[in-house]
């Protein structure tokens, strides 16, 4: 796995995440939450504008 070793090197200076970590998952779902808010409120604003 050349990929993982390169990520290892890169992240040496940063915090390391162990085998049971789910931090990446949490960050990823939060991005989904942001999309959820943006998409819903855009259509909601369109609704208000056309009312």
């Amino acid at each position: 796995m050349t990929d993982s070793s390169s990520t290892n090197r890169k992240s040496n200076t940063r915090k390391k995440y162990d085998e049971t970590s789910l931090s990446g998952t949490f960050v990823s779902v939060l991005i989904i939450a942001v999309f959820m808010l943006i998409s819903w409120f855009s259509v909601f604003l369109l609704f208000l504008e056309r009312n």
């Binding site: 993982s4 290892n8 992240s11 940063r14 995440y17 049971t20 990446g24 998952t25 989904i32």
Partner: peptide, 27 residues
């Protein structure tokens, strides 16, 4: 489901030694 899928992928990456926050996406 969203959480479970991402967690499956992250854990699989971690088991292969990925230690960066989102590096598991790459492998």
């Amino acid at each position: 489901t969203a959480f479970a899928m991402l967690a499956t992928m992250e854990r699989s990456g971690r088991a292969k030694g990925v230690t960066s926050l989102l590096g598991w996406w790459k492998i």
